[in-house]
Amino acid sequence: MTAKISYADVEVGTELPGLTVTVTRATLVRYAGASGDFNPIHWNEKFAVEVGLPDVIAHGMFTMAEAIRVVTDWLGDPGAVVEYGVKFTKPVVVPNDDKGAQIELRGKVGALLDDGLVRVDLTATSGSDKVLGMARAVVRLA
């Protein structure tokens, strides 16, 4: 499949629409149920602190999945993602309140590759922390 965006319509530096995601403890419980990852660092504050974390943290794969939404929303076709990878740099700390944590997600075309492929560089921050590093997707455009 190819994206609805044309290769001719993008250039290096093209910014994708950003996304802000709110993560609450309820979000983590739902994600744990869907993923089967019930590690107590994602729901038990006492346990998380005992193992050296500042508080309960979001699942890394949840953060990764939310970040690629910037790309798939822009493309209109999740099937156009050819490759995707990140490095987890800092956890998203999720307080036990009604506000939760915010993840700010941004994307920018980093390179035009051969055969209609484009590399999109992503940034993901929570508060002042960069929570994903080397977040890159390669996508096939029309």
Rank of each mutant, 00 (worst) to 15 (best):
Glu83Ile: 00
Leu141Lys: 07
Glu104Trp: 07
Trp43Glu: 12
Gly133Trp: 01
Asp115Asn: 13
Gly60Thr: 07
Thr89Trp: 03
Val81Asp: 10
Asp37Leu: 06
Gly18Glu: 11
Leu113Ala: 07
Leu117Met: 14
Leu105Lys: 02
Val93Thr: 12
Val82Tyr: 01
Ser35Trp: 11
Asp115Val: 03
Thr24Ala: 05
Ile57Tyr: 02
Pro95Gln: 12
Phe38Asp: 14
Ile5Pro: 05
Asp9Glu: 14
Thr123Met: 01
Trp43Met: 13
Thr14Asp: 12
Leu16Ser: 04
Thr89Leu: 11
Gly127Arg: 05
Trp74Tyr: 13
Val81Glu: 12
Ile41Trp: 00
Val71Ser: 00
Phe47Ile: 11
Lys46Gly: 13
Val29His: 09
Glu15Gln: 11
Gly110Ser: 14
Lys4Gly: 14
Val23Tyr: 01
Gly36His: 06
Ile41Ser: 02
Phe38Thr: 11
Ala65Ser: 15
Ser128Leu: 10
Asp98Ile: 07
Asp121Met: 03
Val109Thr: 07
Ala8Asn: 14
Leu75Pro: 07
Gly76Asp: 11
Arg25Thr: 12
Gly127His: 07
Leu117Asp: 14
Glu104Asp: 15
Gly33His: 04
Asp129Tyr: 03
Ile103Pro: 00
Ile57Thr: 03
Gly133Ile: 03
Val10Arg: 01
Ala80Met: 05
Asp121Cys: 01
Leu75Trp: 03
Asp114Ile: 02
Val131Cys: 04
Val23Asp: 04
Ser126Trp: 00
Gly60Asn: 08
Leu113His: 11
Gly100Lys: 07
Gly60Gln: 09
Ile57Ala: 03
Ile41Arg: 01
Leu113Pro: 13
